[in-house]
């Protein structure tokens, strides 16, 4: 602990004198440690319950095909939650972008296309999807910053809107039969690393750099903590929020692309339960729902914990519904523990 003046540190102001609450006094690292321990415990527990099925290369491979999708969604959710908002439209964006991508790849691709031609169309489809994701995110950001609608309502509306557009485009039908090359890449592996996992790692890296290494990240966290003060400090709130929802849109588009490859189809109303999962992962990973705080490491650990839990339960032949039950409990438990330890910390300070 450095003390530049050599003065003795002064006593902390008593709680009662301040009208704000000290409840959120959060050195974040304690919660990261806690998450790490929870993750280890879950891992050991699941490995202990079914060592043969859980601790196999097959099981790890299948896991690494599963968690990237909701992991990427969780990053999208995390960014908007740090800004003090929420993005309910991520699954809508993912579905819309996957339909755009699939349309480009399936409908525009000539029947007898050569490999290089189909690669071209695949790239075109991917670019179109990312573009659409960006535009959708910017639309959210525009409605929030320029019109002044609360984020939860904007994204509630655009969730319907984007899915609505996707339904209109497809008339409610699924698009199937993607180019073989695309599904091959999407389901393939680079050496032993599955492509979805690599995509997830790219998203981790990208989000980490954005949040911790870029000036944008600090602005975002400050804005989430107190938008008035950030405005008064010369942060361009509008631009930061636009950027945030745009990135959220692009991340959703990436998730959409992964889904297309995995399911070999694009559907307008696919996977709406991902919204809950993304919020669950974000909150479990230590993102403050009131804004201002969130760590990439926390998200990664939350994602892994849930995946271990889910795979372990699979090995026990437990149904998906039981997982919903478990996830609800885990979410509430984590929140209660966080709140508790914060209260204790406040008390020990004063």
């Amino acid at each position: 602990m450095t003390n530049p003046n050599g003065n003795s540190p002064e006593p902390i102001t008593p709680i009662s004198r301040s009208s704000f609450s000290l409840q959120r006094y959060l050195p974040q690292d304690a919660s990261i440690t806690r998450l790490f321990i929870i993750m280890l415990v879950v891992f050991v527990l699941m490995a202990g319950i079914s060592p043969n099925t859980f601790l196999s290369l097959d099981s790890f491979t299948s896991m690494s095909f599963q968690f990237p999708v909701f992991g990427i969604f969780a990053f999208a959710m995390m960014l908007s939650m740090i800004s003090g908002g929420i993005d309910l439209s991520i699954v809508g964006i993912a579905n819309l972008t996957s339909i755009i991508a699939a349309s480009v790849m399936v409908r525009m691709l000539p029947a007898e296309a050569s490999a290089s031609e189909s690669l071209l169309y695949i790239l075109l489809g991917v670019a179109a999807a990312l573009m659409v994701g960006l535009v959708c995110g910017l639309f959210n950001g525009f409605a929030i910053t320029k019109i002044g609608i609360p984020p939860i309502l904007v994204t509630l509306g655009t969730m319907q809107l984007f899915m609505g557009i996707a339904i209109i485009v497809t008339k409610g039908q699924a698009i199937v039969g993607l180019p073989e090359l695309y599904t091959k890449i999407g389901n393939g592996s680079l050496w032993i690393f599955p492509v979805p996992l690599l995509m997830f790692c790219l998203c981790i890296l990208g989000t980490y750099v954005l949040l911790n290494k870029q000036s944008y990240g600090m602005k975002l966290q400050m804005l989430g903590a107190n938008p008035t003060a950030s405005f008064f400090s010369g942060v361009n709130n509008t631009r930061v929020l636009l950027t945030t929802y745009a990135i959220s849109g692009v991340l959703a588009a990436i998730a959409g692309l992964v889904i297309v490859a995995q399911t070999n189809s694009a559907k307008a109303d696919y996977g709406t339960s991902y919204i809950l999962q993304a919020i669950l992962v974000a909150v479990m990973g230590g993102v403050d729902p009131r804004g201002g705080f969130g760590k990439v490491a926390g998200i990664v650990m939350a994602v892994l914990t849930l995946q271990f839990l889910s795979s372990g339960l699979n090995a026990l032949h437990v149904g998906n519904f039981f997982k919903d039950f478990m996830w609800g409990i885990v979410l509430l438990l984590v929140m209660v523990i966080n709140e508790w330890s914060n209260r204790r910390k406040v008390r020990s300070i004063s």
């Binding site: 809950l276 919020i279 919903d324 039950f325 609800g328 409990i329 509430l332 929140m335």
Partner: peptide
Amino acid sequence: VTLGTSSMFSG
């Protein structure tokens, strides 16, 4: 909270 309980109840 209600997201969590909702998942818990239906699960």
